[in-house]
Amino acid sequence: MEVGFIFTEQFNQYNFGSGHPLTPKRIELTYDLMKAYNLFENPNLKLITPRSATEEEVLRIHKAGYLDKLKELNNVGGSPYQAFPKFGLGPGDNPIFPGMYDAAMAVCGASLTAADYILEENSSRSFNITGGLHHAMPEMASGFCLLNDAAVAIQHILDKSPNGTKIMYLDIDCHHGDGVQWIFYDRSDVLTLSFHQDGHTLFPGSGLLDENGKEEGKGYALNVPLLPGTIDSVYINIFEKLVPEIMDAYRPDYLVCQLGVDTHFSDPITNMGLSTSGHEKIFKIINQNVPKYCNNKFLGLGGGGYNVGVVARSWSLFLAELLGVKIGDPLPEQWLDSFNEKWGFSQEEPPTEFRDQNWHIEEKQLKNPYWENELEDRADEIVKKYEEEFIPLIKKSE
């Protein structure tokens, strides 16, 4: 099965500057690891050069006034401390940088390129690791996201498809996929499902169980807010129970998935407890269910992840899963040399194994066996809510 992989050497355009968590090194070192494992040489992989988005395509989601402001700031040479709070731009999450409009349009274009690929009759899988900027709102930037490429790609698929087409958006980033949720909150042709760290403990503060759509979209916005520290076993158990049931109830024509990996226990800005081994199991569940429920049509997007070594390893695992190949330890020496040269000890400790385990969590379990019960109790409460209320509502509506 051929996989369309969106590849560009222009990945460093989207660059908020030194010290920002969303460093372009994430993409560069992921490419390096994929190359070191010869994934780009796989006969089932098709490397695709992305196009840029058009204004018309982006304006299907974003407001003209906001897009005009991004264009105005594209060639800015002024102070990096300049701020436009109305548009969510300025010091902090979304600092202004030269070429920001071009960079945002390029990311959207890469996701549109991935969408165009799966719209082809005989193409079923595509992956754009530069995408997944799920926080941007129609009229403003948010959480490192200037434009919401996920929403733009979803709307593009709907525009190019027959009436009645349905899309399921699955988001596994540690942060709630709020931008995509609110954009499609009153619609039933897009079902959003976000697994994330509880919004009471993490930006953007949303994604609670009772946020489940309005008007025509009532019941089609779904959230799974998990407690900080949730471990592989608890996460995978609830994921394996709910995702196939929701797919079966909704029967989407396409699955669009945001694959943020900041749920890893070592991520510097989140508090979840997954490992790269856990990520691989989650990826397998997703990939195994696409042929059953989504007409075998899948669009994968990148997303969060701020431990660079984790991003490279986990997204390489996902691409390998799509290609049906097995890769593993030891990590290639040439990639470790590249990692140390480009990122190195001054930024984060280099990884020592491809599929890691969360030993810190196991130690915590031994010291406090009741702690895991809290995680499981939360997961059980969520599953009960879904099985008794949310999933029956979708089935009734369909």
Rank of each mutant, 00 (worst) to 15 (best):
F11G: 07
Y14T: 12
P24M: 11
K25D: 09
E28F: 14
E28V: 06
M34S: 02
F40S: 09
N44T: 08
T49N: 11
T49D: 15
E57T: 08
K63H: 08
G65E: 14
N75D: 15
K86R: 10
G90K: 07
D93S: 10
P95M: 07
Y101Q: 04
V107P: 05
D116T: 12
I129Y: 04
T130A: 13
M140E: 13
L146G: 04
N148A: 13
A150Q: 12
A151G: 10
L158S: 02
P162S: 03
N163T: 13
M168L: 11
G179D: 03
L191S: 01
T192N: 11
H196T: 03
T201A: 10
G205C: 09
G205R: 09
K214W: 06
E216P: 03
E216Y: 08
K218F: 12
L227V: 05
V234F: 01
Y250V: 01
D253C: 00
G260R: 00
P268C: 04
L274P: 00
S275M: 02
K284R: 14
K284L: 04
I286E: 01
N287I: 06
Q288A: 02
N296P: 01
V311Y: 15
W315P: 05
V325N: 11
I327K: 08
P330Y: 03
L331G: 10
L331S: 12
Q334L: 12
L336F: 01
S338K: 14
S338F: 00
E341P: 04
Q347N: 10
P350I: 10
P350S: 10
P351D: 13
N358R: 03
L366F: 10
E374R: 12
E387L: 14
